[in-house]
Write a protein that binds this DNA or RNA. Structure first.
Length: 485
RNA sequence: GGCGCGUUCGUCUAGAGGCUUAGGACGCCGCCCUCUCAAGGCGGAGAUCACCGGUUCGAAUCCGGUACGCGCUACCA
């Protein structure tokens, strides 16, 4: 069933941004293509002129690019089966629609929106399935000719025969069957000359030699229409795979109201593309083992449509956060450095100069303690400026009667050190503690507070080494003065 | 309403008739490590596998029904 070199496509309509659900659809298409040595194609389904959004296509492309899902053919890349924007393929759709009309598999319909809604109301009142009543199917050739000549607005509709069973195989769901009686005589060409999704999608998938249609579950119910169209044209059908939906915490379809849905939102919040992709991939797929941390390449190796789940998955931000931390920790320090520098540029420390060497030390110290790049700054501001305030709870817990004198004593000790390294601070501190006749803890904690303003963080001597002797001494003195019990 | 799809710890999931006292991960809690906070290690709580019935020596796994959820039911995709 799976051809040797499959061709799959991600076919979003440009609504303004890339939805995370769309990201997952794109990802599964990509993974499937790469896993099978096939091609991944981007096609823009911009057939609804009312929904046109300025810059949406560029946005979509930028998001895909950021995330690293590279396609071989697409609107900005070209390819042998273009154009890849449906709005540039209008003539093609028209031609195929007319072919169907000639074969009586589709027909012109001149009904006004008013009549349509009247019919619908009537049917609903009688408790019937709202469906077009094939009113225009009985028009004579002359009547049609006449109306066309007089520029009466029209649409072209599919002529669906009643009492048929339309069945197809879905890789994920198995065999699915529909009754043709519930299917409306679907509009193929709208009165503005644009095709509807159904026509454009089938025509393009055929012309672009798409072998596998991998899309969201919301399309499952329209698939019989597509199957019928393939049959009308006498075309070979692609393999269908309908993906489960992504859900809000309350199990409704993932929506903007309940949080961020745009890939760019997550990017702006500081999520790594690797983590987002990893996370989204696991929402509905797994390799059958316990592995949860993935790089793109490994997913490509292991992916298969057969292992995609049937049921919807809640988009659970906590797991995403964990994965982000996991991915962040695996990044080489050099890469972290460049990300941290970018982050500093948009922080309140913009303009302040820190050497790469310094920043690398900060990274080493904080690496295990952050989940996001920006946390290097938020969780350890003391590496970028002296603390202005001291955590009250920590003062209460760690700052005792003689603490101020003790750290001043220590400052004195420190000032005698020559180019101290981590161990030198430690030795000096332990010595001082001994001289003062107190436990090292009694000194360590107040020093930590004095130097960082908080109670947690990397090992104290690492902090001291990083900020340096002069800064350490100055912070100790300042704290001895400022911290009051 | 009709049609379709789905239903295993709070969440993501493993599970393809006996290997299951249903496994892992996130989150939560505890212990260890430790100058603190993390990370890491160990452990714990958490699922009558939606429900009912059937098939079978045996069912989370197969079949039927019910409930619930979601999707579609447009000249939107």
């Amino acid at each position: 069933m799976i051809s040797e070199h499959p061709r799959v496509r991600f076919a979003p309509s440009p609504t303004g941004y890339l939805h995370v659900g769309g990201l997952r659809t794109a990802l599964y298409n990509y993974l499937f293509a790469k896993n099978n040595n096939g091609k991944f194609i981007l096609r823009i389904e911009d057939t609804d002129r009312n929904r046109y959004v300025e810059g949406a296509v560029e946005n979509l492309i930028a998001a895909l690019k950021w995330v690293g899902l590279e396609y071989e053919e697409g609107p900005d890349k070209g390819g042998n089966y273009g154009p890849y924007m449906q709005s540039e393929r209008l003539d093609i759709y028209k031609k195929y629609a007319q072919e169907l009309v000639a074969q009586k598999k589709a027909y012109y319909c001149f009904c006004t929106p008013e009549r349509l809604s009247q019919v619908r109301d009537e049917q609903q009142k009688q408790g019937l399935q709202p469906k077009y009543d094939k009113h225009c199917l009985s028009l004579s050739a002359e009547e049609i000719e006449e109306k066309l000549k007089n520029n009466v607005p029209y649409v072209i509709r599919m002529n669906i025969e009643p009492d048929m069973k339309i069945a197809f195989e879905d890789v994920i769901r198995g065999s699915v069957e529909f009754d043709s009686n519930i299917i409306d005589d679907q509009v193929l060409i709208k009165s503005d000359g644009y095709p509807t999704y159904h026509l454009a999608n089938v025509v393009d998938d055929h012309l672009m030699k798409i072998t596998h249609v991998i899309r969201g579950e919301e399309w499952l119910s329209s698939t019989p229409k597509h199957v019928l169209l393939y049959d009308f044209f006498g075309w070979e059908k692609p393999v269908f795979a309908h993906l489960p939906l992504l859900l809000n915490p309350d199990r409704s379809k993932l929506s903007k109201r309940q949080g961020d849905v745009a890939v760019e939102d997550y990017r702006a919040k500081g999520y790594l593309k690797d983590a987002l992709v990893n996370f989204v991939a696991l929402l509905g797929w797994n390799a059958g083992d316990d592995k949860e941390y993935y790089e793109l390449e490994e997913m490509v190796e292991k992916f298969s449509l057969e292992r995609v789940n049937k049921s919807g998955a809640v988009f659970n931000i906590e797991k995403l956060n964990w994965l982000n931390a996991e991915h962040l920790r695996k990044k080489p320090d050099e890469e972290l450095l460049s990300m941290l520098k970018d982050e500093l540029e948009v922080s309140k420390y913009k303009g302040k100069i820190f050497s790469d060497k310094y920043l690398l030390l900060v990274i080493e110290a904080m690496k295990e303690r952050v989940s996001f790049v920006k946390e290097y700054i938020e969780k350890s501001p003391y590496f970028f400026e002296a603390p202005e305030e001291y955590d009250q709870d920590v003062i209460k817990k760690r700052w005792k009667e003689g603490s101020a004198e003790n750290i001043l004593k220590l400052a004195e000790k420190f000032s005698a050190l020559q180019d101290p390294v981590k161990e030198d601070y430690e030795t000096a501190l332990r010595q001082t503690a001994e001289e003062l006749g107190i436990g090292t803890g009694k000194l360590i904690h107040p020093v930590r507070l004095a130097v960082s303003g908080v109670g947690g963080g990397p090992g104290l001597f690492d902090i001291l080494y990083i900020i340096g002797k002069d800064e350490t001494i100055s912070r100790l003195k300042r704290a001895a003065e400022k911290i009051k019990i």
